[in-house]
């Protein structure tokens, strides 16, 4: 039987038979449906995915009319990290004029709100310089990154040191104090950048430190929305599942630990976010057909209940894109097309 070339979740090429691909597509959607208590993909959607993987073309695209807009996390930094000798303002121009970017995003190299606070004036200057030479909507992006608020990087006792000692109440108290500090930093930095002319704030990789991290993002957005009713805030998540590192935190009565994207987006709406970016992580030991089917199942469920635009995260290692610094075009294009067309996305 003819083999089809596809890839594993770490990007390595692999040849699979038709039955193996169909089996992985079915298993991927079932895994998401079981974990998220959501509907699996239909037979027609699985057939669409099979045809996509069986397609002989090196690069595929959405059909005309199905195009969406793109937003970025750490966009400018990816050029700087590649050791191309341009500064961030020039990187924004490259995104706008050369990479076909619909939006652009400025961020500090540390990409977290806390370290930006003492240098916010420098960031405002960079943002204002960028606005002078670009047209596209400009986000300022950073992460809540709650890990920076516990020792040795921050003021509060490290919960991950306290938990093994059985000091659960102390660990929870530390998380709660970290949330309050993070909210102040996010509001301070986001306000400064918005006052300087940012078209939007991108709160990225939210939930990386579990439910306290997610709560900090929600509380900060609520304050910002009250302060600036017209502000655009995009919420990008860190993973498909909110880890219960505290375990008992809630947002207006809804327990955050254990939430999947279709629940997370409702919290985002309640907090006042303008755009929501769900994340579904890659399992590197499984095939891309398995991963993409699983990612689309979660994302589709999120899109179906959302009242705000959805920009699914499809960077390296999420959304069906392999975990490799050089994502292969054959898989990125297939993942991009399938995610947009099955989920009816508003953006990526």
């Amino acid at each position: 039987m003819e083999k089809i070339m596809t890839r594993m979740g770490d990007g390595f090429p692999v040849e699979m038979s038709e039955s193996e691909i169909r089996s992985d597509l079915a298993a991927g959607t079932e895994d998401a449906a079981d974990r998220g208590k959501i509907a699996p993909l239909s037979k027609e959607e699985l057939q669409y995915l099979y045809d996509l993987f069986a397609s002989p073309y090196r690069f595929v695209s959405v059909e005309p009319g199905n195009e969406i807009v793109l937003s970025y996390d750490g966009g400018a930094l990816k050029i700087v990290r590649a050791a191309v000798n341009v500064d961030r303002v020039q990187a924004m121009q490259i995104h706008e004029k050369i990479l076909g970017a619909d939006t652009i995003e400025l961020g500090h190299v540390d990409y977290s709100f806390k370290p930006v606070k003492p240098i916010v004036g420098t960031e405002q200057t960079a943002l204002e310089q960028t606005l002078m030479v670009t047209h596209a909507p400009l986000f300022y992006g950073a992460m809540p990154n709650l890990g920076l608020y516990s020792q040795p990087d921050g003021p509060h006792p490290n919960p991950l040191d306290l938990l093994p000692l059985g000091k659960i109440d102390e660990a929870r108290e530390s998380y709660e104090m970290s949330v309050e500090d993070a909210v102040k930093d996010i509001v301070f930095v986001a306000s400064a950048m918005y006052d300087s002319g940012a078209d939007g704030i991108n709160m990225d990789t939210t939930g990386a430190a579990g439910d306290p991290d997610f709560l900090a993002g929600l509380k900060a957005a609520e304050i910002l929305k009250e302060k600036y009713p017209d502000i655009c805030i995009e919420l990008g998540m860190a993973g498909e599942f909110i880890l219960g590192l505290h375990g008992e935190l809630d947002y207006h009565g809804d327990r955050l630990a254990g939430m999947y994207p279709q629940d997370q987006v409702k919290m985002a709406e309640k907090a006042g976010f303008t755009i929501f970016g769900p994340v579904v992580n890659i399992k590197t030991s499984r095939s891309v057909p398995w991963n993409l089917s699983r990612a689309i199942t979660f994302t589709k469920a999120c899109c179906e209940v959302a009242n705000i635009p959805i920009h699914a995260n499809m960077g390296m290692g999420v959304g069906g894109v392999p975990m490799t610094p050089h994502p292969p075009l054959d898989i990125v294009s297939r993942a991009s097309k399938a995610m947009v067309e099955i989920c009816r996305l508003d953006g990526l």
Partner: peptide, 27 residues
């Protein structure tokens, strides 16, 4: 994630083209 593998691939596969077209306006 390098720009060719990520930003450019998505822009060509699914994007509206930014300022080459009306992507920034729709955004």
């Amino acid at each position: 994630g390098d720009p060719l593998g990520m930003a450019i691939s998505h822009a060509i596969a699914s994007g509206m083209g930014g300022m080459r077209a009306a992507g920034d306006l729709v955004a």
